[in-house]
Design a binder for these strands. Structure first.
Length: 553
RNA sequence: UGGGGUGUCGCCAAGCGGCAAGGCACCGGGUUUUGAUCCCGGCAUUCGCAGGUUCGAAUCCUGCCACCCCAGCCA
């Protein structure tokens, strides 16, 4: 099934190009550098690139832009592929690698030298910076700018043949040191890096820069629409310059869209890495991380993430998207698709004094409207646990839970009435004595006194215990990523609260890792992908239910 | 003070000369054995600002303002 085309400026461009024959088939690409894990911002880019290709009968390549081996690794290559597949996208053919084009790229570098369009420069990094000028002052020509073609060619070959030290020489394009666009001030094409590359081993000691590589990679693959984020806009003249000055086989064009900035989160790779390296989170897939793998472990679904990307649209304006939109997307999906179950996070024992020791088993539906989600057995016993927040000795009218002398409905079971609050020597509440009202399963009390509310419960003898991790947003600040502020100072100290002994109904012990549930009245939870087992159930809170009732009553 | 962008409701976002879609959030009200869901209703006389063109402008023109990106041998 093809999705209907999105309504955005990129789709409009593609539709026009297809209509007037500028392109026969749309070919896009998602080009991550394998130097980190994918995050929610990449999800948008993936959705844009794969989505546009899919909606227009084209194809999308996955290409690792591995031109800087120092920071890259196979671990990231594997993780990136897994994340894209998990999101539900399939790239065309095999994954591609920029490194597979190194020989071609090098030959084009020699071509440029031969055309007099590139030269080997001996300026040090510091000197080069000085020569480059500033935003408001033009740069100066490098003293090596006018070497002969022969000399340049010999030097470039020497660079490749490992005859120079790192930093000793670079290859630069001869464009215009006075250009108001810094990218055109004789940009660097090749630098010497004597490191082993994860794909090409020790075959190369010189590596192409992003600018010299990206457009040509696109041309090699026949990419028609090379879509990237706004910060590359200034690079487009250079992208086009290479395409025009090189004998490439096709003419890709670059288009830019605004990157995704969700509120209350950071998405810079540097900062995410810091969170991991300094132990502020448990790893790249910590459920609080905005990484794809983190969201996955948190219980987000591919469908919700894709829906979110659809919701936010694709434009050239860069703003901050309220995370509430992401939260809406996951609630919408889970409300529709997650089975319901009961879990008591803060247990308070309730003894039903008029109920026998023998258990009763109710068969209850797993979803209020999805019959196809089936039913389950729910044992009811004389002793149960309810949440301590659901009982008060006295309360005002607005409190719709259990109150001494009043009634409440136990979800899927009886209406009960509280008779007595038992306390320990310290005066702390330890137990509630209550009575079931006969004949109230599926019925209202015969005396006409209806309970005001419904609460969840778990059988004390038949239930099981579980570890439940309550996650909240990682940052308190709405824009921790903004400006130079120290984002670490805005970490939410309560972003993870672990409940070591929560009570879950027996059916939940059969949950399989990554299975999502709604724990009624609490929120959506998922069996942890790594730590959950039938012996020690572990659930992660994905997101709470919408709550229009303030606890401050 | 150079260059490149962006400015439509608290947030995202349609709109492309004919009289401001939609979603999120929020606020009411109804249904409800989840204070959830669902349903119904409200929510920009105004489109960064100021001029101008036009019968008519968010849409065209001029000027101004705000914010974002660029001075890695990162991508």
């Amino acid at each position: 099934m093809e999705d209907k085309p999105a309504n955005n400026f990129l789709q409009a461009i593609i539709a026009r190009d297809l209509a007037n024959g500028t392109v026969q088939e749309v070919v896009t690409r998602f080009p991550p550098e394998p130097n980190g894990y994918l995050h929610v911002g990449h999800a948008k880019s993936i959705s844009v690139n794969f989505g546009l290709a899919e909606a227009n009968g084209g194809r999308c390549h996955l290409r690792f832009d591995d031109t800087n081996p120092e920071k890259e690794s196979q671990e990231f290559i594997d993780a990136i592929q897994e994340d894209i597949r998990w999101l539900g996208f399939q790239w065309h053919g095999e994954p591609r690698f920029a490194s597979a084009y190194f020989q071609q790229l090098y030959e084009w570098a020699e071509y440029l030298v031969q055309q007099g369009d590139a030269y080997v420069c001996d300026l040090s990094a510091d000197e080069a910076r000085e020569y480059r000028g500033t935003l408001t002052e033009p740069g100066r020509n490098s003293p090596f700018r006018d070497r002969s073609i022969e000399e340049n060619l010999a030097l470039l070959r020497g660079m490749r043949a490992n005859q120079f030290a790192e930093g000793e020489k670079v290859l630069r394009a001869r464009i215009d040191m006075a250009s108001p666009n810094m990218n055109m001030r004789d940009p660097i094409l090749y630098r010497i890096r004597k490191v082993t590359h994860h794909q090409t081993g020790n075959e190369w000691v010189i590596y192409p820069t992003y600018d010299f590589a990206h457009g040509q990679e696109d041309a090699i693959e026949g990419i028609t629409h090379s879509i990237c984020t706004l910060e590359f806009e200034d690079h487009r003249p250079l992208y086009d310059w290479f395409i025009e000055h090189l004998p490439v086989q096709s003419r890709p064009r670059q288009f830019e869209f605004g990157r995704l900035n969700p509120s209350y989160t950071v998405t810079s790779k540097r900062k995410l890495k810091q969170l991991v390296d300094e132990g502020h989170v448990a790893g790249w897939d910590d459920p609080r991380m905005p990484t794809i793998s983190g969201m996955r472990r948190r219980g987000y679904t591919p469908r919700a993430i894709r829906r979110f990307c659809e919701m936010i649209g694709t434009t050239r304006s860069d703003g901050v998207v309220d995370v509430a939109m992401l939260e809406f997307a996951i609630r919408e999906d889970l409300n529709e698709n997650a089975a319901r179950a009961m879990c008591v996070l803060n247990p308070l024992k309730v003894v039903l004094t008029n109920y026998p020791d023998t258990a009763e088993v109710f068969t209850v539906s797993n979803h209020p409207s999805r019959e196809d989600l089936g039913e389950r057995d729910l044992p009811f016993t004389r002793e149960i646990y309810i949440d301590a927040d659901d009982f008060r000795e006295e309360a005002n009218k607005k409190y719709k839970r259990l109150v001494l002398g009043k009634r409440v409905r136990l979800r899927h079971a009886y209406v009960i009435e509280a008779d007595e609050a038992i306390k320990n020597a310290a005066g702390e509440l330890v137990e509630v004595r209550a009575r079931v009202i006969e004949g109230t399963v599926g019925e209202n009390p015969a005396d006409g006194i209806k309970p005001k509310g419904v609460i969840q419960w778990v059988s004390a003898s038949e239930g099981r215990t579980a570890i439940v991790r309550l996650y909240d947003r990682l940052f308190i600040d709405e824009a921790p990523d903004k400006g130079d502020k120290d984002f670490l100072e805005h970490i939410n100290p309560d972003s993870l609260i672990t409940v070591e002994t929560a009570w879950i109904e027996p059916s939940l012990a059969e949950a399989v890792p990554e299975q999502g549930f709604q724990f009624e009245r609490e929120g959506y939870f998922v069996a942890d992908r790594r730590d959950h087992s039938p012996q020690v159930p572990v659930f992660n809170k994905t997101i709470g239910l919408r709550d229009s009732w303030s606890e401050s009553a």
